[in-house]
Design a protein around this nucleic acid. Sequence first.
DNA 1: CCACCCCGTGAGAGCGCTCTCTGCGGCAGC
DNA 2: GCTGCCGCAGAGAGCGCTCTCACGGGGTGG
Lengths: 340, 340
Amino acid sequence: MTHRDPGRARPAPTLEMVAALAGVSRATVSRVVNDSPAVDPQRARAVRDAIAALNYVPNRAARSLASRRTQAVTLVLPESTSKVFTDPFFASVIEGIAGYLAETEYTLTMILSSESSPEKTRRYLLGGNVDGALVVSHHSGDNSWARVSGSLPVVFAGRPLVGEAASHYVEVENEPGAAAATDLLLSRGRRNIATIAGPQDMPAGIDRLAGWRRALAGAGLDSSRVEFGDFTPASGAAAMRRLLARGAPIDGLFVASAQMAAGAYSVLASHSLRVPGDMAVVGFDDDEFAAALTPALTTVHHPVTGLGARMAEKLVALIEGRPVERVTRLGTSLVLRGSA
Amino acid sequence: MTHRDPGRARPAPTLEMVAALAGVSRATVSRVVNDSPAVDPQRARAVRDAIAALNYVPNRAARSLASRRTQAVTLVLPESTSKVFTDPFFASVIEGIAGYLAETEYTLTMILSSESSPEKTRRYLLGGNVDGALVVSHHSGDNSWARVSGSLPVVFAGRPLVGEAASHYVEVENEPGAAAATDLLLSRGRRNIATIAGPQDMPAGIDRLAGWRRALAGAGLDSSRVEFGDFTPASGAAAMRRLLARGAPIDGLFVASAQMAAGAYSVLASHSLRVPGDMAVVGFDDDEFAAALTPALTTVHHPVTGLGARMAEKLVALIEGRPVERVTRLGTSLVLRGSA
DNA sequence: CCACCCCGTGAGAGCGCTCTCTGCGGCAGC
DNA sequence: GCTGCCGCAGAGAGCGCTCTCACGGGGTGG
């Protein structure tokens, strides 16, 4: 069998056709479609009937050409596909974004920029496809955003490392959260506290490490027990192994992501180190990894869904020209479970 | 601080402006942009210079209005956000799609239809936003696609349960794969073979169960040991519990997804049943779950990334009016690891 | 009873691009 | 030397919609 139907079948009905059927002008149909004020109710009804009869859907291209708006925003994910789809963080952020946008007239598109060339992404963003962009997980290397955000409203998840002063963003208070987590370990009487930190080219990685450092400094303790991961379980396991290989005593551990904590747990188990007995552990991220561990992970909770929602809210406000706070900071809380 | 910049800043350069700067007509610029044949090389160069000087990007809305094409396709995911972002299957499919499209001029957008209303999704698809759609994981309840696919090229992942005869799709040979898996268990001398099947409103669930049934029937064995899950680990665990609670002896198990196998493993462990000694297990899906289990899961491998790539390929061909096979079937292979 | 509004409507001018069609210049053929 | 092509460029007509503007008719106030 071969192809049956190149392109769309019957030509789509147009405003013009609706107007003809309803016996009014195009302008009136347009008013009804955009439910603008003050159209004679009877005519409006006739128009609606005609729309239903023709199964009319406004052509987005024409509309956006005429109105210079697209009613679409895009979520740019500069991570590799598999990372995006494995990390519960992204799922929650997207849930928050999609949830907020569902209330509005905006539709969400996504673009995995690792899969397309940067040039293609740029053309997509600047080519009038979207009214604004949301950017998640930008590493410091990504300076392409400076160019784009001059011409298009952009909201970042997390403080951008370049061009921070001019950017709109929503961030979690990583540093205070990490400090609080470390303080908890201190309050449990731990004094040899290590950390598995995140990538140092991302604000979440940098700030969580800084919080840990500040807390230890406040207690006059040594903050040399640091190993780094990339937020994945495997990297957490590797970092844990390196930490143990150092030979220095460790009785407390702050891990910058729940996924890395999961990796660390498996290494601790293979070394017959008990949590929290031998090693009190506090993580960051209150996701399914945190809850699924045994013992369940005491962790820093942050509102990830809220992060997404606030990003979307900020972007829509920006697009519509409403006053917007440039920066939104979301607080964290400590969730006490079994690991510390 | 308040907002700084509603909408885009400077008005975007247009074809007209490029034409003026290059000293040619709009038509010529258009030819260069679409690298159509036969433009005087010198003029073409002048045009390119002008484009670069103005940092010109063609306006998509205008282009698609005039050409009746958008150069964009969308991936529709009718699952809940968290499910999409947790299941490695989706990640791989998307990887395949994005990989293929990266070679083309098409951009990929995604729409999580669970988050938007079906009406919004329909308007998006029919509103001229995209040239075609890819649909993954449609349950039998989803008959909304029939309406859409009349007006827009659509390619499904897996055989659609409604409107199969008219649909373009790419599917994995689930039934033969499941039969082969079951045959392996038979060849290992197992005779009391159970299955944890997938949802019976999805082809993958239906066909894998059918393959298991056929293999057992071929061997003249009983095929009553069936429990159902929804492809998630938790549902696999629950199904395993129900299977064991029946009290009938079981020495072989075919699980319709690696994720469910992971769930089943944990239940087997808690019943002190050893794999493969007490229970030989064969799964379906060769993903990270399968490899991470202990013992590693013997499983049916199917080309998930290839599935995505072939879907994208088929859709693009459909859009461009090239001849296309209506159905593509992808074979499976058995990956022997420790569990059977 | 006339001037003034105001409300609902239609006409019409684009939005930025594509694409057909016409036209112009140069070359080959007779 | 004239006709016929062919190759390349420009003119111009839309694509389907939005939005401003002007208009007509029915109140209201003086």
